[in-house]
């Protein structure tokens, strides 16, 4: 699947990258990202995840061709 990260997460990951193999759900993806770069742990704990422009729960079942966006807390305004 494809993962897209935003804002402060770009200091820890490429803006867009592929995750190969089976990732069961959003929580498993969060754990996978944590293993890729533990320094992003504090940020990953508070991020939301989105698929097809909709926020999804930690238990959301991921498919291989999903594009998952990792959304840090907002800081607009």
């Amino acid at each position: 699947m494809k993962v897209q990260v935003f804002a402060a997460l770009k200091d820890y990951f490429d803006k867009e990258f592929e995750v190969a193999g089976k990732v069961q759900d959003v929580e498993a993806l969060r754990q996978h990202l944590l293993e890729l770069n533990g320094a992003a742990g504090n940020m990953l704990k508070i991020c939301r995840f989105a698929v097809d422009d909709e926020f999804v729960d930690p238990g959301y079942q991921l498919k291989e061709n999903d594009t998952v966006c990792v959304i840090p807390p907002s800081s607009g305004g």
Partner: peptide, 14 residues
């Protein structure tokens, strides 16, 4: 509107 935009909308400042 401004409160909800600031808290909820995926926009980030650097």
């Amino acid at each position: 509107i401004i409160d909800r935009v600031k808290h909820e909308v995926p926009i980030w400042k650097c």
